[in-house]
Nucleic acid binder design. Structure first.
Lengths: 248, 248
DNA sequence: TGTAAACTTGCAGGTTTTTGCAGTAATTTC
DNA sequence: GAAATTACTGCAAAAACCTGCAAGTTTACA
């Protein structure tokens, strides 16, 4: 692995998670912590990240106040607009949480008349001023950092309904491991969501392509549509084109 | 957790509440109080907060953007502080929605360890950064203007649990007609909430005293505690003092 | 192609930072 | 003014860091 590759990987991780630990990176990239430290120092000197004892933080995190800016907002808006194409009047839609999904529901046309079930309170609230959409919030224990409802309540509730289409964001997707996530509770809920839906749409910014998290949500085969911010013909998506889902 | 992360968390908390206690922060961030004290000293030295005995205060306590436009915010804050007195460690609490309730959960001490069930997504989200409170959102159809979950799902869910105490805001309360509200769906949910709780606390700003809405939620007799922003001895509350609930 | 210069990387060692704890001092509260 | 809380000091262990160095790679150029 070239130094440059490491650097882009580190920057990606920092932007994605707002922080990285030297120890984690050393394992991920299979180099010594000394090397990582040197990398972090260089990236700090060029102002791309902020190095701190134990790792590094994103530049924006350093300023606590403007933290409400969504990372890669433009990309997510592009994804949202593609996703909306899949929604037709009268559908019963199921959604997860996360900024990509919120962006999607923000873009929903005002004349669309559908029913949306969601496990995400922020998504539900965003839809509160949409005149024609019936919103059902699926209740359960609130997962604090991802702000979605989880737990057995949610899973058993989902087992009793069938949805036309399910939209999920994801933290990791790769050819080998499919869709992956890092939180057990959320994985369980996502599995139940997928099971309860006729069609599965995964929304994912390009940066998260080919990244792997600890736990598997589903195989690539279970996906019906994959939406990214890239052109479907982009070379990065080459291998994904050979899967049997629709690429947008 | 990196030191820098702790620092930004502390600054955020200070700006949000204008004060923090070392003991709370130690629990929240899961480090010793010594570490917190050192953090506070460093942040004080760099002028970001003002350290005082027991915790820290915000340096400039008027922040322009914190002028949230809740109607009668001061009154509601007063109510909130009285309400909190009724909550003890380990309780299972049920809450409705509305700005008064939100104000209450904002004021909940950081070292309080309870379970809160709520029908209000905004209340749930407000509690998301409270480390010790388990939050369960009761799901259902989202009522667009009041932003709470309603419908038969909620009612039947409530029939299966018993809560220690239930906090409700209200749109109308009067000697003749008791607690009243204007929306049928919400009235039905509130009735179910009252039925599911051992104690009922009604929170109401003075302005709404003696006002009547279209539909009855409950009789005054069913109330265990009434909290207003007035002094309990205030002459406006004279008639209410003769009821058999506690006045705060 | 061959060789020197420049760069990269891991390691050994010694240094600094961070953190919790114990003991003691200061402050608050009733 | 006694009890309780909070603060400070010094210490020790762990973690992270830095420096110099040697071995390996890449680059430049004759």
């Amino acid at each position: 692995m070239l130094k440059k590759e490491r650097h882009t990987h580190i920057i990606k991780q920092v932007n994605l998670h707002n922080k990285v630990l030297s120890s984690d990176l050393a394992i991920e990239l299979n180099v010594s912590e000394d090397t990582i430290r040197r990398d972090l120092n260089e990236l700090d000197e060029t102002g791309q990240i902020v190095k701190v004892h134990g790792g590094a933080l994103s530049r924006s995190y350093h300023y606590p106040f403007q933290h409400n800016t969504i990372y890669a907002a433009d990309a997510k808006k592009g994804i949202a607009l593609k996703a909306i194409e899949l929604i037709k009047d009268g559908m019963v839609v199921l959604t997860g949480g996360g900024t990509t999904i919120i962006e999607m529901v923000m873009q929903l046309p005002k004349n669309l008349s559908i029913t949306i079930f969601t496990i995400s309170p922020p998504v539900a609230l965003q839809l509160a001023d949409h005149p024609l959409i019936k919103v059902v919030l699926i209740g359960g224990e609130l997962s604090k950092d991802s702000q979605v409802c989880t737990g057995t309540q949610v899973v058993s509730y989902l087992s009793e309904i069938k949805f036309d289409i399910c939209f999920l964001g994801t933290n990791g997707i790769s050819l080998m491991d499919g869709v992956t996530d890092s939180d057990l509770d959320i994985v369980q809920v996502k599995k139940a969501m997928i099971k309860a839906s006729k069609r599965l749409v995964i929304m994912c910014i390009a940066e998260k392509l080919n990244s792997v998290q600890r736990m598997r949500v589903c195989e690539l085969q279970q996906i019906n549509s994959l939406i990214t911010d890239l052109d479907p013909a982009d070379h990065i998506l080459q291998a994904y084109r050979r899967q049997n889902f629709q690429l947008y």
